[in-house]
Amino acid sequence: MLSPSCNFYDIPQSTLPKSYDYSSNDVTSTVMIDNKTFNVSIVTYDGKVGFTVGMDVIVSLFQLEVGCLLLFTKGFGHFFYLKVFGKNGVEINYPDVDADEAEVPPLDAENEPDEHIDGCVTTFVRMAGEDYFRIPDPVSRKARLDEGLKDLNIRFLHMDPPLQITNGTRREKRPNGRGYRYALTCWKKFMKAARIKVRDQVHYSFDENEQVLSVERVVPYVKRTK
């Protein structure tokens, strides 16, 4: 059932291929609804496997409401068929929706004060929060997230040896309703992989040419003593 602000949709373990290790690799699935196909990421979070990036596009494009029932039928491999049922239990069809005409929310026009832009590279510093990481507006623009949500290449340059992963993105409406901002998905999983703790000071850079977000340095939080 579609719930408010949901960015993770559990997939029952019984429907997943037994031979694939979802804990070590994220995959891209194909979801079909009314003969229209969408790429949707499947990731592991807190021991559960579920749909993430791409579902927001389906929800927005088909204007799905809270309380709708989403019925997935597994096809071959990572192919899924999706049917949507309204709150009254009646299946909803979308014959007139064109998947190529999905509207993408505009990027924020607000600038954040602590970014430094040097050519194609933007550097910034953030204190690690517990629940999420919002991407600065200049980085969102350079990552072209206004053209559609996608996985970002992430490099942990502060680790020895350096590590590279991919991480999903999501968008959220500002509380005042004026524009959208973008964030990384599965933030706690990101923190664990990067060995970042809450309140650590994290130095980032984003290379527009390579389309890579890097963690350059992590300054551990030290609790002050009286």
Rank of each mutant, 00 (worst) to 15 (best):
V84F: 02
N88T: 09
T52G: 01
T28W: 10
L71P: 03
N88W: 03
Q164E: 15
L163H: 06
E210L: 12
T30C: 02
P113V: 00
S14A: 15
W187T: 05
E65V: 04
I42K: 04
V215K: 02
G168S: 12
V121I: 15
S41N: 06
P138V: 12
L69W: 13
G54D: 03
G179S: 08
T30H: 05
P220M: 02
A128L: 06
E208M: 10
D96K: 09
E112H: 05
I165E: 14
K189V: 09
V57G: 01
N25R: 13
L70S: 05
L157M: 14
P12G: 03
V84C: 07
A194L: 14
N111E: 14
S24Y: 02
T44Q: 12
L64E: 00
D34V: 06
L152C: 04
N111S: 11
D137P: 00
P161I: 08
Y45H: 08
Q63P: 02
L152D: 04
I33D: 03
V121F: 08
N7S: 07
M32H: 06
F133L: 15
I58D: 02
F124P: 00
G50N: 07
P4A: 11
F51H: 03
I92Q: 11
K83T: 12
S29V: 04
D46S: 08
G119F: 06
S24L: 13
Y221I: 02
K189I: 05
K189D: 15
T44A: 12
I92Y: 06
Y45D: 08
T225G: 14
E101D: 08
P138D: 11
T185D: 10
E103K: 07
V222S: 14
S29Y: 05
R141M: 10
F38W: 00
P161H: 06
V31N: 03
R199N: 15
I92V: 12
C68L: 02
T37D: 05
G148P: 00
R144F: 12
G177I: 06
P220A: 01
L152N: 05
S140G: 08
P220N: 01
C6Q: 15
D100E: 11
Y180L: 09
L145E: 05
V125H: 06
P105E: 06
G168I: 04
V66C: 11
I196C: 10
E115T: 14
K74G: 05
D118V: 06
S60V: 00
N25D: 10
K142T: 03
R224S: 15
A193H: 08
I92G: 01
E110I: 05
D151F: 08
N176C: 09
H203L: 08
G75H: 02
N93I: 07
V121K: 09
F85K: 00
V53P: 01
K74Q: 05
Q201M: 13
S29W: 00
F8C: 07
R141E: 14
P106W: 00
